[in-house]
Design a binder for these strands. Structure first.
Lengths: 124, 124, 124, 124
DNA sequence: GTGGTCTAGACCACA
DNA sequence: GTGGTCTAGACCACT
């Protein structure tokens, strides 16, 4: 399981959202696998159940998980249809980071080398 | 000058910070050039002066501008010493976006092509 | 038989209620015909018998079916006496949907055309 | 302002969502008009602020209002582009109600007459 | 003043 | 047992 950083600028529920997303992406959770219950996660992370709820709701709205009342929350299958808005947003993120890196003095070649390596290794 | 989006999820002052950063990066403001006064910007963007003040303070803390009391705010020279923590954080951002893009079904080749193009054009 | 959608926002028992209603309305079940037993349905839909029980109870309360202890559940005859409260509620639903459609930019003609077609075909 | 029905099957926040939607549709609130603050509504309806928040969030996600932190919530302009998924859902609602009305013994002619009248009068 | 987040603890319907 | 909703009351960042 992931670690929370209470000092972070990110809100707790957002950290949980990102943490679970990361676990789904990395394959630690597979499609249709059950996530821990709200109460369990709440106890594990020593965070209020409402906060976990909020995170789960957000994940559901973004299509990462689905909820079966009375049973629990489960990982959605990866969407086959690529959501253009979503990918555009991610490429935007990358573009902004690249701009800042350039401004911070890194050369195009340096950035390109590091990023290419990163992509080849699947983002690691 | 840049546009504010009141409906955006980003707070106003954050939009101003990003907007000014973008103008510095793009070269619309050069090193040691004077930025508009708080009052002017406030009038131009029809935003509370406190909000502008806050944005300037943030930019100063991040090293993008410096303040000369009684004269105004000026653009800093691009830092020669590369801040490792900052660049690491930016590369992290990129890595996360790449991971998510892969998970969303894009191929390594597609991502690499788009990102390479982006870097060659300086992040645009 | 109908399909259950575990991911749906509707609860399981509500889906069963609606499913059986639909089959009665469409004529797949006729008046005084026997419905499958709780145990059979439970096995067919792989759903807890309690949930089936609950659905049958709800259908009985709403007057769609009647129970003969020891024999099973049977489809009621269509009520001859029209329940004003119920019809008023249904017309209310329609009115609200129409209002929202108008607000969303559809023209009166478009709505009227689609709805008329729908009614002529018996709601399909 | 609208009335809450604590005995209703609908949850409170859902009633608030529907109530505000209705007021927007009816024109009681116009585009870019400010809604009451979370605290004010909370006091008016004697409902916990969190519940109001939840309702506002839902309205925002559905595109009915937008939020400006520190200023308040405002009514969105009616979308020019018609959302097919949304309209389909509304027509579905209507279809289901029509089916039930037919089953309850109303004739096609009766339903058609009432619904046509309703549409001509803009849903009233 | 505004909305945004969080905690603590409770009750409900559903499976 | 599960998630869904609600209350009460608190603190925060932003305008």
């Amino acid at each position: 399981m992931f670690q929370l950083d209470l000092k972070s600028k990110k809100s707790i529920y957002e950290q949980i959202v990102d943490g679970i997303k990361a676990m789904i992406i990395s394959g630690e959770y597979s499609a249709d696998e059950k996530l821990p219950s709200v109460r369990d996660l709440s106890a594990q992370l020593t965070v209020n159940p409402n906060t976990i709820q909020k995170a789960f709701k957000a994940l559901e709205q973004q299509g990462w998980i689905y909820t079966v009342t009375g049973r629990g929350c489960f990982v959605s299958e990866s969407a086959k249809t690529i959501d253009r808005a979503q990918t555009a947003h991610l490429f935007d993120n990358i573009a902004n980071s690249v701009k800042e890196l350039l401004y911070l003095g890194l050369s195009i070649e340096e950035i390109q080398k590091i990023v290419d390596d990163m992509i080849m290794k699947g983002g690691n």
